[in-house]
């Protein structure tokens, strides 16, 4: 018996994990989902999310969410921190790719009619995920605190703030004052690194659970 077998045996005799795993591991994926690359889009979005979490944790270790230090800390990441420039750029590209993948994934669901009974609620969870993904982009855009970040956020919060009824609350919640400043930064930072990742994770569990329970839709 090798060491690996021993470890396996030790764990198995206590937790029986293998019994649970076989049903996952042997679970058949239908042929049409394996051969049609359109079915990869959801998984692509998910992989991007994982990469964003990983690179995001790295960035959060160097980033300082105050108007005085934010720009300098990003500059520091780009020029001094080992691999900092690469990691920030991967974060940037994974964010864009995730949005594109989510949109294309949604188009596949729409044009294949995969939202129909019994999958209505998974579509609703999906649209919420799309909203969250774009909000991720919006909140992340401000954080480097450069000219584009500041002014795009000013215009964006201005637009969100002029939605009837909800607008004033949205802008109070987001801006935290009358103008984009330190309050806005900490809010956007908290939303970007705490609120959105947590809600995304919860919704993804729901999303995947529903796909698993209902099976992937299809014919072709």
């Amino acid at each position: 018996m090798s060491l690996l077998d021993n470890i396996n045996e030790w764990i198995y005799s206590r937790f029986k994990i293998k019994d649970l795993l076989t049903s996952i591991v042997k679970h058949p994926a239908p042929d049409y989902a394996v051969t049609n690359p359109l079915y990869c889009l959801g998984g692509t979005a998910f992989l991007c999310f994982l990469i964003l979490v990983g690179t995001g944790i790295f960035l959060a270790m160097y980033y300082k969410p105050t108007p005085l230090e934010a720009y300098k800390s990003v500059e520091h990441i780009m020029t001094v921190v080992p691999m900092g420039s690469l990691i920030r750029s991967i974060h940037h590209w994974a964010a864009n790719m995730m949005i594109a993948a989510v949109m294309l994934h949604m188009m596949r669901i729409y044009f294949m009619g995969a939202y129909k009974k019994p999958r209505e609620l998974n579509w609703v969870v999906g649209v919420t995920l799309l909203l969250i993904t774009t909000t991720f982009g919006f909140s992340g855009y401000l954080l480097p605190w450069d000219q584009l970040a500041f002014w795009a956020t000013k215009i964006g919060t201005g637009i969100a703030g002029s939605i009837p009824i909800m607008g004033q609350y949205i802008s109070l919640l987001l801006v935290g004052g009358t103008d984009i400043g330190a309050e806005t930064m900490t809010r956007f930072f908290a939303i970007h690194v705490m609120v959105l990742p947590l809600t995304t994770a919860i919704l993804l569990v729901l999303h995947f659970a529903m796909v698993r329970i209902q099976g992937i839709s299809g014919r072709l």
């Binding site: 990003v74 500059e75 780009m78 750029s89 480097p144 450069d146 000219q147 584009l148 970040a149 002014w151």
Partner: peptide, 9 residues
């Protein structure tokens, strides 16, 4: 194409 950084806000 590395992520950009313009002038400070």
């Amino acid at each position: 194409y590395p992520a950009g950084l313009l002038k400070p806000a």
